[in-house]
């Protein structure tokens, strides 16, 4: 399978600390690749490298056939690789609809065209009823969906989701999982950082485990759950794949 995104030997150091150490992975077309690991393992730094927020000290990121690791974030986003943030960053002075329109404007220059597309994205993420509410008045769950809708409005090919379930109730989380699956069904490839184990195991086609900045293991969820190295370092004896 031709990978849609490749990370080769990415390394990043901050002073004496090596946050990401020689990480290599591929994202397949239409794949959901989950990324798990303890806090501080380097997952968000990896996202920052891929999305262009920081350049790697060593290694490459290849997307769409080109090296993108030296490009600024807005150029990478314009090419179709978009990320969301752990702490969401909505445009607080705009309405929900206007927020998503900003994303839509990336590929559409006409106001009405952008609005139509934004409304579709809001439908898709279940936010249509709140279109005209100011973005800062939303609940956390809604703001996360807004961040998602805005990213989707740019017609991405690859989407990086950073802890999109954090802070959500189980019900909200389950709905969000469905949305993520629909996104993949629509043809987008996804890299997903997550701590909610049950969800990520159910959602992902493959899982990559990052520990101390290194790729500890990568493979289908069932295999990862049984990997002794992973269990020892991270999962613990009590973990079971099947959710209750």
């Amino acid at each position: 399978m031709n990978p849609v995104l490749s990370v080769r030997d990415a390394t990043k150091r901050f002073g004496g600390l090596t946050a990401v150490n020689g990480v290599t992975l591929d994202l397949g077309e239409g794949e959901i690749l989950g990324i798990i690991g303890p806090n501080g393992a380097g997952k968000t730094t990896l996202f920052n490298i891929i999305s262009g927020a920081i350049p790697p000290d060593e290694g490459e990121v290849i997307y769409g056939g080109d090296r993108i690791d030296q490009l600024p974030p807005h150029r990478i986003a314009a090419r179709g690789l978009v990320r969301t943030f752990q702490v969401v960053k909505p445009f607080s002075g705009l309405t929900v609809l206007q927020n998503v329109m900003v994303g839509a404007f990336l590929r559409r220059s006409e106001h009405d065209e952008a609005e139509d597309h934004a409304r579709k994205m809001l439908e898709f993420t279940g936010l249509a009823a709140q279109s005209d509410r100011p973005a800062k008045g939303l609940t956390l769950a809604a703001r996360k969906r807004l961040e998602l809708a805005r990213a989707l409005a740019t017609d991405p090919t690859v989407l990086l989701l950073d802890e999109v379930l954090a802070g959500l109730t189980p019900t909200e989380g389950a709905e969000m999982v469905k949305v993520v699956q629909s996104i993949r069904d629509g043809g987008v490839s996804l890299l997903v950082i997550e701590h909610v184990m049950a969800a990520i195991m159910a959602l992902s086609d493959r899982i990559a485990v990052i520990h101390h900045g290194e790729l500890l293991a990568i493979g289908p969820p069932a295999q990862i759950a049984k990997d002794p190295g992973v269990v020892a370092a991270y999962l613990g004896e009590e973990f079971q794949i099947a959710p209750d």
């Binding site: 999305s51 600024p72 974030p73 807005h74 150029r75 986003a77 314009a78 978009v82 990320r83 969301t84 943030f85 960053k89 909505p90 445009f91 607080s92 002075g93 705009l94 206007q98 329109m101 900003v102 994303g103 404007f105 990336l106 952008a114 805005r150 990213a151 409005a153 740019t154």
Partner: peptide, 19 residues
């Protein structure tokens, strides 16, 4: 739209392709 976005949340604006 790009101007308003950049004014309110520069990082979020970068992430949707705004220079």
């Amino acid at each position: 739209a790009a101007i308003r976005a950049a004014a309110q949340e520069p990082e979020g604006a970068e992430m949707v392709g705004i220079d």
